[in-house]
């Protein structure tokens, strides 16, 4: 019986980090007694007195404070209530945290948890996927776990890393995604073949992995074997695994939930086009959300983001070429 949710994995990882490393502390809005807006820190304040703090609504200062604490040897985990609000701390993330090591040789081991991505009815400011924005900046590690196992192990790894990590956890997966146990850890920076195939490759990450797997299953009924690669970490990006997959299939579709201009999906296409042009039997495609803010009404939201149906349609286009 599958019993551990993606959200519980995130809580368990924080529990484990707090338990095993006295340098770890948690800072975020409503995370102490209340356990956080999503309950990702439920009971942690009680179990680790003096190490879980309710923050004022001050994202800029939250990140700045984490950087200062990291300089002193602490390993803070900062919870943004929603990924969208990290934009308020943007300056501290990309200019303070991301440049510290390069400028001063002082490591900056902070983990910034971003409850990311769309859910129905959440609207333009509680739905954003920020991985591409942060990946653009040197000095940050950007993780996008799509499974319960990765949510657990990659969060633990984030805390151990001596660099700032933007941990993009997907809200859509919080309650629905379940596993029996935490399985095996895989190293950060390695992509994973989530489903082997030979006719086309889908490279994706986070919640879009699950839509893509469903699309691959749909295409199987038509006799196609679609390989699905889960990036796991957007930065660093595991180009080798991507290229090896494209070498097998000759066709590439990249799927991401963030906005279409640039970003992680464009990066994959650019790498494949420049390094493996000769392997491609069809122009590489990408599928993202639409180029508008994320709509509130579910009718619009469902059309704004990629879905199993739109991924299947792109795949058919790719396979027909």
């Amino acid at each position: 019986m599958s019993s551990i949710t993606y959200l519980e994995a995130i809580r368990e990882a924080q529990y484990e980090a707090l338990r095993t490393n006295p340098d770890v502390f948690l800072y975020g809005q409503d995370i102490n007694a209340f356990g956080g807006a999503f309950k990702a820190t439920k009971n942690l304040g009680r179990e680790f007195p003096g190490r879980v703090f309710d923050s004022p609504i001050s994202e800029d200062a939250m990140i700045g404070m984490a950087v200062g604490a990291a300089v002193e040897g602490a390993r803070p985990i900062i919870e943004m209530q929603f990924a969208d609000f990290s934009s308020v701390g943007f300056n501290q993330i990309v200019n303070q945290a991301a440049t510290l090591y390069w400028r001063t040789q002082t490591p900056c081991p902070i983990t910034i948890r971003l409850p990311s991505g769309g859910t129905a009815g959440s609207g333009p400011f509680h739905s954003q996927s920020m991985e591409s924005i942060y990946a653009h900046y040197p000095g940050l590690v950007i993780l996008t776990p799509a499974t319960v196992e990765d949510a657990y192990w990659m969060l633990l790894d984030s805390v151990k890393l001596d660099d700032p990590v933007i941990f993009c956890e997907h809200k859509f997966l919080y309650y629905h995604l379940k596993a029996d146990d935490f399985g095996q850890a895989m190293p950060i920076g390695k992509a994973r073949i989530a489903r082997p195939g030979r006719d086309a490759t889908v490279v994706t990450y986070s919640a879009m992995l699950h839509e893509s797997l469903k699309a691959a299953e749909e295409l199987r009924l038509d006799g196609y074997e679609v390989e699905v690669v889960d990036l796991r970490s957007v930065k660093p990006m595991d180009t080798d695994t991507i290229l090896a997959s494209v070498a097998r299939t000759g066709r590439l579709l990249v799927v991401g939930e963030s906005f279409p201009w640039g970003g992680a999906t464009a990066e994959v296409v650019a790498r494949v086009a420049s390094e493996a042009f000769h392997l491609l039997d069809a122009p590489p495609l990408r599928l993202n959300s639409k180029d508008t803010p994320i709509p509130y009404h579910p009718n619009l939201w469902k059309s704004h983001r990629p879905t199993t149906a739109s991924i299947s349609a792109e795949l058919r286009k790719l396979l027909r070429y």
Binding site: G121, G123, P124, P293, P295, Y296, H297, P298, N299, L300
Partner: peptide
């Protein structure tokens, strides 16, 4: 309710 007759036409809500 996100209806199109509203000022936000379903694009934004509440």
């Amino acid at each position: 309710l996100g209806v199109v007759t509203g000022p936000m036409r379903g694009r934004d809500g509440n």
